[in-house]
Design a protein around this nucleic acid. Sequence first.
RNA 1: GGGCGUAUAGCUCAGUGGUAGAGCACUGUGUUGACAUCGCAGGGGCCGGGAGUUCAACUCUCUCUACGCCCA
Length: 916
Amino acid sequence: MSNSQLPTIFDPADIEARWYSHWEKTGGFRPERPDAEPYTIVNPPPNVTGSLHIGHALDNTLQDIVIRYERLRGKDALWVVGTDHAGIATQMVVERQMEDRQDKRTNYSREEFVQKVWDWKHESGGTITNQLRRLGCSMDWSREQFTMDPHFDRAVLKTFVDLYNDGLIYRDKRLVNWDPKLKTAISDLEVDTQDMKGSFWHFRYPLEDGVTLSDGRDYIEVATTRPETMLADMAVAVHPTDDRYASVVGKHVVLPITGRRVPIVADEHADPELGSGAVKITPGHDFNDFEVGKRAGIAAGDMLNMLDGNADVCQVSDGLVPDEFIGLHRFKRDGVDGAREAVVARLKVGGFLIPHIAKTKKGEEVEHDAEPRTIATPFGDRGGVVIEPWLTDQWYVDAEKLAAKPIEQVKSGEIEIVPTTWEKTFFNWMENIQPWCISRQLWWGHRIPAWFDTDGNVFVASNEKEAQTQAGDGITLTRDSDVLDTWFSSALWPFATLGWPEENQPLLDKHFPNSLLISGFDILFFWDARMMMMGQYNMGTAPWPKLYLHGLVRAADGSKMSKSKGNVVDPLGLIDQFGADALRFFMAAMESQGRDIKMDEKRVEGYRNFATKLWNATRFCQSNDIGASSVLKAPRARLAANQWIIGEVQSVCEEIEAAMADLRFDAASNAIYQFTWSKFCDWYLELIKPVFNGEADNPAAIETRVVAGWALDQIFVMLHPFMPFITEELWHAQATHSGDKRKYDLITASWPSPRAEISKEATDAIDWVIDLTTNVRSAKNELGIPPGAKLAAFLPSASGIAASTLARSSAAIERLARLTPVTIGEAPEGPAMQVTAGSDVFIVPLEGIIDIAEEKARLEKALVASQKEAKSLEGRLSNANFVERAKPEAVEKAKADFAHHSAEVGRLEEALGRLS
RNA sequence: GGGCGUAUAGCUCAGUGGUAGAGCACUGUGUUGACAUCGCAGGGGCCGGGAGUUCAACUCUCUCUACGCCCA
């Protein structure tokens, strides 16, 4: 008998690094399987500036589980990986580094700056990809992608030009979300609205000479949270049905400060219930006002714009902003008053401010300039400053048209969203989708393929030469300086990574559409929905048939993790502490559909313990000369324990397959966990220990070594998707132990396929031994008998199972139930404890050890419980409605349960009778 | 304002139309070589409140309450 070659202590760090580089070097992530069925997942490309956070850990663990599972099942599994150039984020990182060196972007030409970003990417862009490796992700690194790769560039250009030619991309002047810090437009999705404490000011706008309201007042009261924009007011709106103002609709007010004469218009936007019912209209700096302005007949080009790209006041086209305001920031910044404060001050001095009267706690009235109010304020998600609605020319995608087909596909089930609860959210957004602003005023990104002549005519083409051809010879062209929204290029990820738009791309032919997309719900609109649109537009089909959305990983207290809160859990720290396998298993076990995951380090620790348990089980096997198996099919077995474990392997395998088919990661991981620990370690290994007490080469020991080795191997395979490192290590340790008869890696092994016929007699026998053992242990515990005590037992009348099992498995019964010898026959008179197993009642004489009163109490407790069950079932069965209307199976089950409990009651009563 | 989700053991969470499970925590205990990162045994829940459908509801429907998220 050889000893275990495994170290006593399981050290994850050592084996993780070793196996990952081995897999990568030997091509384990993408074995050659030209004839196999494809299985394809594309990884949501992390920002090239990113580092692995806990959300990545969840997202990528789930994907790796799926891809490893499908690889083991023999598919041509491809997991596409790469990074996103992340326009704004990356440009910000490089600019910040320049700032640290007292340098800035504008010290360089565009080309020089872009080169610096590339330099940064080559130097520091690999952080996250190395961290994904530490997590064990089996991606195809040999084809690592980047959204600014030359072939990606071609895909982006072609998509833009095609969409433009089809009228689905257009240039428009309208209000955009302008980030005055980053000085670029952003899309609606990149705006975070937050409730902020602010003020609500009330002003008098004087009516034009002589005009009065019906109550005689010669002014209209308007209220606003943004007084500074009154410098660009172009109207006052009242509700069409508001009688207070009916007489002045069509008349004018003369604005204080600018003296501009603006009309009073009727528009449903004005809410009669809010404030005075009249609102100032600034079409150039408010989305609602923009629409009111359009309805009032003001063209976008004529709308007044009083702010520059920094959101500092500039002169408007009618020249009416007084000089003293020019150059002020829109509002107070860094302690310096802005246009807002200046406007309020001027209006107050001029008597146009209507003070807000508040009552103190003592009931005294106090005057304030403004009413305190909570304001939903838009912030840029990257820049973090308040967004300014700003009138500019930008490029837009007609998202409404592109959304039509994906909506249909989700409705028809052509695309399945898991869990389905997200469908409503998806439809809600897609059915109300707004034009997508895709141009960004940045330097880093895909430059828009549009050229302008000196008259502002635009020519869209995939290169300058074609644009020139369109424009004609001799026309001077200037390329649009803007770049595209990062999400425009990542929307092409499922096919651009596979070779589109080049011709003859076997990889693309085979792996598009992909098989599944896994993403967090937070990028459902940013990315998933746009891939659907672009997949349909470019490829004529959905990019994948199934979309799995998982939740967020939250801090232990349920709050969102954020750097500012300081509650961020670093996945790499958890890997260092517990191992990647434990972290991965945690993610899988906690991933139930439709729920966020709360961080729980104790649980990660528990899965590290699970890995240790498996490690030690393998050490035990090796010490008994149990080695690697060489067959896929279950070995032939005669021993009941061996047949039983084969049957259990088969059923856990089916359980995992069913769970994986439904993407129930929790169910799959729990199944293999329970099987490994509770079935294999706790029972099977204990049951087979006695087999190895005899001669090493007796037939029972030989059979058991083969079966145990096989079962352990099946555990490695089934657990591998969840815990790739330890399983690969143990797989090879087992192979080494049996003299290297198996040279291939677990990562490309085959999924179990037991196909065994298991006799019911064998499984019944083991279930009976387990029942007996559990009952003996429990009785001893309650009676205070030392667990190690070996006791003689009598079985007055033995069932068939009892007789045969006692004959064949007396060693296991001695070891586990600690009953020896067991005599079939009447027990001698005297104090004894009664223990059942199935329908058998064992009598264990305990002269001098046992307190009869205690044993009686124990049996009575059990009797009461059994009687209660029996009575409840009897009640149900005596209910005619139940017997007639319930499903026949339910009635049958109730009858069987009743019979079982009645018999139990009988046995217990008999046992009690013996004691009195 | 609109939409969605969640409320089950002390904690974190599964769950099925036939009266409940896991992990951790807790209590007691430790059977001479796989494992104390362990073993064995045990306690603990009128499954958020109310109403309805049903022979039967934690499970389906409605409603209320609380919490969370998204959109406006």
